[in-house]
């Protein structure tokens, strides 16, 4: 797969605009999924993953052809997600728990205004519950957990995507796992 993608990158560099579409086809689901799990919102995930591919295209001449393309692309997308998470915090802190709702945050409230928190918990499907707990993780743990367990990257790849030593990546995964364990132990 990497070889196919690299041959397409060479075509793009020669000016074959359409070859980039084949690269997008290969990675679109993985990159969209990463953004969706990081941001928890289909609209934002679409926006951010689209932007990741456009940035990759614009900067394609800066990609080192001897490296793995997916790692580079994941890095662009992860950084865009983290930027977006940081930017939206001052406006409305969606990750913050809503007072008196015992672990529910604004994401769940936005989704269903008419239900009380208790009803929401009862109706919330397992998948939504897990997604909500992932969204409640601080962004540095969230990116490590999503890359490890949803995108199934190796520790070495994650350390390249996040530009962190492997030891730091491990610590973030360990802490993220511990936070999730406490939140998910009773289901």
């Amino acid at each position: 797969m990497e070889e196919f993608v690299k041959s397409r990158i060479k075509q793009v560099l020669k000016g074959d605009h359409n070859a980039f579409g084949e690269i997008v086809e290969v990675y679109k689901d993985r990159i969209y999924q990463l953004c969706y799990r990081m941001l928890g919102n289909a609209h934002e995930a679409e926006d951010t993953s689209q932007e990741a591919f456009i940035r990759a295209y614009v900067n394609i001449d800066r990609f080192n052809i001897n490296r793995k393309f997916s790692t580079w692309l994941y890095r662009i997308a992860t950084n865009l997600c983290i930027d977006r998470i940081r930017k939206k915090k001052p406006d409305y802190f969606l990750d913050a728990e809503v007072k008196g709702t015992d672990g529910l945050n604004l994401y769940s409230q936005v989704q269903s205004k008419e239900m009380t928190p208790d009803e929401k918990v009862a109706k919330m499907e397992l998948q939504e519950l897990i997604q909500m707990e992932i969204l409640n993780l601080p962004e540095k743990y969230r990116s490590a957990i999503v890359l490890k367990y949803i995108e199934e990257l190796s520790l070495k790849e994650i350390s390249e995507v996040l530009d962190l030593p492997i030891g730091t990546v491990k610590t973030r995964i360990h802490r993220g796992r511990e936070v999730l364990r406490k939140q998910l132990r009773n289901i």
Partner: peptide, 22 residues
């Protein structure tokens, strides 16, 4: 916990995703 996170279903990009990027 790990099994639960891994059990999250895989989600796909929209059908016109590539078209929109291009």
């Amino acid at each position: 916990t790990i099994a639960l996170v891994q059990s999250m279903s895989h989600i796909k990009a929209s059908d016109d995703f590539t078209l929109k990027v291009m």
